[in-house]
């Protein structure tokens, strides 16, 4: 039996917990507390990590980890990303500066992104079309990164599955 790790990261409120819930076979184990940040429209926020799981028929397991969004917990990002087979960065496009948010996580995972497949999911882009999807690609190119950027609604399992499919495609491409 092999175990693989998949990391969901992104700002507070970007939907990491929801995304894990969308594909996890077990209810997500959360470490949420009451939100004290008045700028966030949510009652609870994750301060530790979220955990979900997918089991395959051969016994292999994929552990799904959601990082805490707050930057004061950024020491945990690298711990969680170690040996991961993919990193999903979720961006909330309704926030003040989504491009800066992406920058924050790209910088936080800079070393890991040299080898670990990564995809960027942009949430709430229908109601908040600016910056556009291509603006994120341009920002990535300015950092010499070529990463898939797609609009997502993490409440829809199919959108989360597409993110995972893209990570698998990246890994397969690395194998050839």
């Amino acid at each position: 039996m092999n175990e693989y790790k998949l990391v969901f990261t992104g700002t507070t409120g970007a939907g990491k917990t929801t995304a894990i819930n969308a594909v996890s076979e077990t209810p997500t184990i959360k470490t949420d507390v009451a939100n004290t940040d008045a700028s966030l429209d949510k009652a609870l926020t994750t301060v530790g990590l979220d955990f979900g799981q997918i089991s395959l028929t051969n016994g292999d397991r994929i552990r799904l980890f959601g990082t805490p969004g707050q930057t004061r917990f950024d020491f945990m990002w690298k711990i969680l990303a170690k040996d991961a087979f993919g990193i999903i960065i979720l961006i909330d496009n309704s926030r003040a500066d989504p491009l800066a948010d992406m920058d924050l996580y790209l910088t936080g995972f800079l070393k890991e992104l040299e080898t670990i497949p990564c995809v960027i999911g942009i949430g709430r882009s229908e109601k908040n079309p600016t910056p556009g999807i291509d603006d994120f690609s341009i920002r990535l190119a300015q950092r010499n990164l070529i990463l898939p950027v797609i609009p997502v609604d993490v409440r829809r399992a199919q959108d989360v599955i597409l993110l995972i499919d893209i990570l698998m495609a990246q890994t397969e491409a690395d194998m050839i």
């Binding site: 997918i54 087979f85 670990i116 698998m168």
Partner: peptide
């Protein structure tokens, strides 16, 4: 540095 999955892992996950 990457835990490279085995190929049949992808078919099973898909």
């Amino acid at each position: 540095d990457v835990a490279m999955p085995k190929k049949n892992f992808f078919s099973l996950l898909r």
